[in-house]
Design a protein around this nucleic acid. Sequence first.
DNA 1: TATACAGTCTATACCAAGGATAAAGTCAAG
DNA 2: CTTGACTTTATCCTTGGTATAGACTGTATA
Lengths: 280, 280
Amino acid sequence: MDLQKLTIGQMAELNHISEQTLRLYDRVGLLKPQYTDERTGYRYYHISQSARLDMIQNMKVYGMTLRRIREFLEENDADALQKLLLEQAGQVEERIEQLSRSRAAIMRTLDNFKRYEAMPKNGEIFIEFIPERHIYRYTCDVNYFDQDETGYEYMLRQLKQHLLRCNMPLSYFSNVGTVIRKEHLLSGNMFSNEVFLFVDEKDKARDAELVPAATYVCLCSAEFSRERENVLRLMDYVREHGCQVVGDYLCEVIVDFPVLDFDKRQMIYKTQIPVCFPKK
Amino acid sequence: MDLQKLTIGQMAELNHISEQTLRLYDRVGLLKPQYTDERTGYRYYHISQSARLDMIQNMKVYGMTLRRIREFLEENDADALQKLLLEQAGQVEERIEQLSRSRAAIMRTLDNFKRYEAMPKNGEIFIEFIPERHIYRYTCDVNYFDQDETGYEYMLRQLKQHLLRCNMPLSYFSNVGTVIRKEHLLSGNMFSNEVFLFVDEKDKARDAELVPAATYVCLCSAEFSRERENVLRLMDYVREHGCQVVGDYLCEVIVDFPVLDFDKRQMIYKTQIPVCFPKK
DNA sequence: TATACAGTCTATACCAAGGATAAAGTCAAG
DNA sequence: CTTGACTTTATCCTTGGTATAGACTGTATA
């Protein structure tokens, strides 16, 4: 093999790249063969052109387009390279951040699945101690209980747009719920214009709110339309046991399959009222 | 706005998605509008269809293709969802791993740039203490000093193919060098058929080798063709100062621009011989 | 020298996941 | 009834390649 005059096939093999790709790079001016036979059109490469190919492959890993790579290589400037690297480092960092959030969202969902499987289903009331969590509230312009699912979806759309506007990570969107403020709950007023989402501790700074650890009277259900009824049942329980309500009512969506029924959100929610049991 | 009968524009706006994308999803069967006017072809969506759109967007974040998303949503199976999530978590994890390596490679390069700027240039000999490092060696079928740059490039190609064959991260490829074994160095035999790359500590397990911390007699140069001469100069220094060579000679490529000269690798290397100075 | 066969050439089409545009048809408000 | 905003389909464009066809070239062998 003459390392100074490699055919396209040899060059491709040495660099673990396809011949078509080399032809493409030639066409777009990213890597011209050192010599092209005018009569036959055959391309001949010098092995030292691999250096440029290495650079191209690196830059591709950093997520640059071929056009930008070409422009950059044409600039031919070492300072620009340092600037570029810094910039790419930032982008890679951001991408990692985003993926970490995705991963967290996936794990949260899987965790919820597992919890769900071990949970009393179908409306049975149970007591659970839940450690502290951080939530972010968003206030909508409608009352959740005035509507059917349509209203809930609308609230979610508002929340989603808000997240986008504020550059908050969309991955949080997979773990949402609704709130009834304690005062409305106690006065029997079915009113909720707030949705919330659980956020990581590190986002505490961003207007997030601490929900302290507490004992909750809980209930799980898959029936959207019976939430109102479920709230009443929980409050009956609270009264019967002489409990004191110590915070807002949360309705957390723990499993959400838009899968099972074509088009319609099919979800399982867990309603929670934080209480203090009376001292005997 | 009638939430039960949204036009494509309204649906697009509520979900922060383009109309074209909705039409595309309709065409490929990923999300059909709830109702299509037969006469005019107008699409009308129900807001609850946003649920499916949420699901699609999530799955896209996990890197799934539209085809796979459609197939999955058609399966309509909750167990499959859990399996999918686990699988996606694995993929996300892997991607994060890979990006972390990229980041490390970028930072290493930037770091080398900075070091280079503060370094004696142009062949001046200097003494430097270098902490321990981990390297991975690869033995080629040619002697580096028998060739010109052509041979070096060829060795690099062999190394790269080896990395690919062994599923080692390609990002290491950005920080390479050549070795002269101590015995060859001492006998004045210019022989090197080994290239190496620096690896992270966590990859120690994979046949990596510890280069202990030591004091090095060093020299930086940008002239590829003068490496042989530079080795001799370093060894002269070693002899003049009565030093003892305590390990292999390393020639580390610290800056590599295939940028400056069209096609040709333009690099700055730092040669290093680990020594012990005589006790006075 | 003829032939076989591997390698290479150009041209074209294809992929995903949309974006952009044009020309025509539709809806709703004044 | 008109106007302007909206929607329709159809077609082309993008990026970074892959795949194919049909023609041409290079080299080894008979």
